[in-house]
Simulated scan of single mutants.
Amino acid sequence: MQDEQERWRAAEHLALVLSEGGLQRMAARTLAVFLFTDRPSVTAGEIAERLDASAGAVSGAVKSLLSVGLIERLPAPGSRREHYRLREDAWAILFTSQNTVIQTMLDAAGTGITAVAEDDLAHRRLVEMRDFHEFLLTELPDLLLRWQHHRKGG
């Protein structure tokens, strides 16, 4: 029993770290369930029970994690409940899905650049923001390929 308590104490600590890093609290706690469960899949009801949370809160967190590609819905023949699991390639998928965030930042920088004079301090800052995000977008594909190669033991 002590090992089980230790496991879920560590899960709650991770959730706290994730939420301090910007992830919504319930999404962070839900992600921690996926990371720390010893089961291949879980249902929203099981997550709600584990977290002592409402079905609505868990539903929103699950939708959030599905939308960024960290978890996936599984077919569950014979079950009336949806089953979910952490994707095997969750972290690379998350990084890839964040390309849209990077593109949004890039677009915002471009809009800002056109709104200020070239000799304005804001212009220099916005150009650096744009250049950084352009660099990131060009580097991500190779970085993810290297990760896949590394992950396969190469």
Rank of each mutant, 00 (worst) to 15 (best):
110 G>T: 01
77 P>H: 04
123 H>R: 13
70 L>M: 14
110 G>V: 01
84 Y>C: 09
119 D>L: 08
87 R>I: 02
105 M>Q: 09
67 S>V: 01
79 S>Q: 04
66 L>W: 09
124 R>W: 06
75 P>E: 15
109 A>F: 00
127 V>D: 03
69 G>I: 14
65 L>F: 02
102 I>F: 03
104 T>V: 00
125 R>L: 10
104 T>P: 03
91 W>I: 08
128 E>L: 02
127 V>L: 09
74 L>Y: 13
104 T>H: 12
85 R>M: 06
90 A>E: 04
95 F>G: 07
88 E>A: 14
108 A>T: 03
127 V>W: 12
73 R>F: 04
70 L>C: 06
71 I>K: 06
86 L>P: 05
121 L>P: 15
70 L>P: 01
107 D>R: 12
94 L>Y: 10
95 F>D: 02
76 A>P: 05
122 A>M: 11
91 W>Q: 08
109 A>R: 03
64 S>N: 14
85 R>S: 11
117 A>Q: 15
126 L>P: 13
68 V>S: 02
92 A>Y: 07
103 Q>S: 02
117 A>W: 14
78 G>V: 09
95 F>C: 08
113 I>T: 01
96 T>R: 14
67 S>F: 06
87 R>F: 04
91 W>K: 05
86 L>Q: 13
96 T>E: 15
74 L>D: 14
99 N>L: 07
